[in-house]
Design a binder for these strands. Sequence first.
DNA 1: ATAGATATCTATCGGTTGATATAAAAAGAA
DNA 2: TTCTTTTTATATCAACCGATAGATATCTAT
Lengths: 229, 229
Amino acid sequence: MAETRIKSSAPAAKPQGYAKSDQTRSTILDAALAGFGAHGFAGATTRGIAAEAGVTLPSIAYHFGGKQGLYIACAEDIVARYERSATTLASTGKISFNTSGDPERCRTDLKRMLHMVLRIFAETESAQSRADFVAREMRERGPAFAILYERLWQPGVEMTARMLAGAKDKRETMESDRTEALMLISSLLAFNTGRDVSLQILGRKVLDTETLALLDSTIDRFVDALTRA
Amino acid sequence: MAETRIKSSAPAAKPQGYAKSDQTRSTILDAALAGFGAHGFAGATTRGIAAEAGVTLPSIAYHFGGKQGLYIACAEDIVARYERSATTLASTGKISFNTSGDPERCRTDLKRMLHMVLRIFAETESAQSRADFVAREMRERGPAFAILYERLWQPGVEMTARMLAGAKDKRETMESDRTEALMLISSLLAFNTGRDVSLQILGRKVLDTETLALLDSTIDRFVDALTRA
DNA sequence: ATAGATATCTATCGGTTGATATAAAAAGAA
DNA sequence: TTCTTTTTATATCAACCGATAGATATCTAT
């Protein structure tokens, strides 16, 4: 009874660490994010992920316990990365998360945040895979739904609503603020979920700097239109 | 070489029609829309669809040539239904699709249309399956992408952009109008793609009449904010 | 009414999936 | 070195997939 030891993704009291092991784990995780992001939980195959990562099939079971364990590990990696960058943003003062009575500042911060989200949605490579992973899980309520909902979606909307209310010089967020926040974030999904379609309709091939600028200015127009008296 | 005859979905010059056949075909199509809408092309199984429709597996190959033929038939059914209802709306004068120099009328029509789209996105039963089917195909560029893009997505965005321009009292649509149209439609995806999450965040269980009214008024605020000088 | 076209059924094929058992080799730690 | 941890290689399993062959039933046209 080999009692397959599943390495917990939280590195709580790592007993013995072999350098190579962590590297293999990380390689598998990257391949899994790409695979799950592109094809979903059911659509991605463990064989394909293992091949992509350059390891053998049983290696996945060894490190993550199985397909579902690997999937959850992906979600936790995404959330951890998000929380890290949010902390950084707050500590460096680039975005003030308190709704101090400065509507203009709130508006600017809100715009800046939405520009950032747009780039996360639209950027290529691994950022795209992560965004796809999250979007898919939100739709399909898969095994990682709770993690992503509580630690990413929920706080994200709440923060946006707070900034919206702040930009309107209100102290409390109301239901209408949350609704507007939802729709504001959702409007950016055109360039994640529907990226190819949107680009095609705009007659552009890729999301280059010029296109991003066009979208940024449209975002600004939305925010201004919604929050200016 | 039995040369399996695939019944073309366009009933062009139906040579011989057996009454029961059309009924079976339609039953399969309904089950397929539900299955593909919920699980996608790869995720839905022909066995499951056949079982749901109460027919046997080979019946699908007989009527549609195979899994992919069935998928395409679903897309064409959706487009046909959309084109029919658009024609009806235009002919009954509920929505004027010409951008006659009446900004107020354009604004009202645009709001009315977005309310309608919201209901298509959010409504239960078969409308939901169809909306899911379209949203999924737009993401994944499956076998039915071209059909849906050219006959549904593209004209839908174009019409929205024209109404937006009209509401701003402009005669020509610019790139910024198309961008705003994209984001406006996309903002409603929060209640299609992300319906469950959005409801949960708003603290609601179902999309009842009261919630719909809240969303309608938020849509109106978006439209007003964007088009009023 | 009967021949031929149309529709449906049972049964099965070859292929792929996730998971796992077994064994052994490779690598780091003691 | 000796022991533990990590990785690979190979093979097998039950379950499920889409497709189709072949037999049968049903309906229409003559």
